[in-house]
């Protein structure tokens, strides 16, 4: 018979276990505090520019039935989101398109293609590293890890020179290839640990039954690591989506991504940071990657578990 405490989930459950609404309350409190800085950015996106930098800082769009004093309350508006795409660039002129629709498309296109490409190439390679070890396998893996160790600024100068000489700077191909390489190290390390976890028994049975190596990979191994693919995709997407330095130096006007455009938009004109504009761009920019993570969340947990726990 469940006691009252158990009914509300207050019983001490260890490790993996069930907990009730009591636990939800505690976690909700912690999560909301953790989320607060993000919430403030999202709220700023809805503030009228005049209230963006008020003292004391405005904190809430509603007074919550008089719970929050008036001085902390701002009047929400949707105006800022329109400003992202159309705004007055030179004072006195009419509002003109800012090109952010293109920048959003660029971010979307460049990130998704390069992360998918890295996933395909990296998965093949990690399968190779896992199943058909080369001589000096560990050395290769370590060299691949090394590519992530240097600050970007060190490799960027040769890359700029290289892109200029072969005419790749400012093109989609160049930046996509660069991001593919940028994601490969992580993809290979992550996916290899997933393949290492698979039991060889099923594969060997299939081989004995006459399956070709390609069939073993596609029909037996790959379906077992779908979760890992999802996890790697999300991590790669988050990193690529927000990459700044390479994008700043290697994209042209047509291929500019949102982080670069965002940086330029908010600091141009010498009037200091445009807070509401920055907040509304970031809020819009957050939505796609937030949704992808949310829908792949279950895979993300299961995926990482499957791959990296038992060695």
């Amino acid at each position: 018979m469940a006691t009252l405490a158990e009914k509300f989930g207050l019983r001490k459950a260890s490790g993996v276990g069930e907990a009730g609404w009591g636990h939800t309350l505690i976690v909700a409190l912690v999560s909301l505090i953790y989320f607060l800085p993000v919430l403030m950015i999202i709220f700023t996106a809805f503030k009228p520019s005049a209230q963006a930098l008020s003292v004391p800082p405005t904190l809430s769009p509603t007074s919550l039935f008089g719970l929050i004093p008036d001085q902390f309350v701002f009047t929400p508006t949707l105006e800022n989101f329109g400003q992202v795409f159309n705004r007055v660039m030179v004072s006195g002129n009419a509002a003109e398109p800012t090109g952010f629709d293109v920048f959003f498309f660029n971010s979307f296109f460049i990130s998704s293609v390069s992360v998918l490409l890295a996933l395909v190439i990296g998965t093949l390679a990690s399968y190779g590293f896992s199943r058909y070890p080369l001589k000096g396998n560990d050395t290769y893996l370590f060299i691949i890890l090394t590519t992530r160790m240097l600050p970007a600024i060190v490799v960027i100068i040769p890359i700029i020179l290289m892109f200029r000489t072969v005419g790749l700077s400012g093109s989609y191909v160049g930046i996509i290839m660069l991001y593919t390489a940028f994601n490969l190290a992580f993809t290979i390390w992550m996916m290899k640990s997933f393949f290492d976890e698979l039991s060889y028994d099923v594969e060997d049975a299939a081989r004995i039954d006459g399956s070709s190596e390609i069939k073993v990979f596609l029909k037996i191994c790959l379906p077992q690591v779908v979760a890992g693919l999802a996890a790697t995709f999300v991590f790669g997407l988050i990193l690529t989506w927000n990459e700044f330095l390479f994008a700043l130096l290697l994209t042209g006007v047509d291929t500019r991504t949102v982080p670069v455009a965002m940086n330029q938009a908010v600091s141009s004109g010498g009037r200091g940071t445009d807070w509401t504009l920055l907040a509304s761009i970031e809020t819009l920019f957050l939505i796609p990657v937030f949704l992808v993570t949310f829908f792949l969340q279950d895979h993300l947990l299961r995926g990482v578990t499957f791959g990296t726990v038992k060695r």
Binding site: E18, V27, S31, Y34, I238, F244, L286, F290, F294
Partner: peptide, 29 residues
């Protein structure tokens, strides 16, 4: 977050969000 509890999925995504911000925005804010 190790236990199963109601609304876990929705609270987890809140905690994951800071990672998804671009450094420019979070740094400036």
């Amino acid at each position: 977050f190790a236990k199963q509890f109601p609304l876990r999925k929705y609270l987890l995504i809140l905690v994951l969000t800071p990672m998804m911000l671009s450094v420019v925005a979070s740094g400036v804010f």
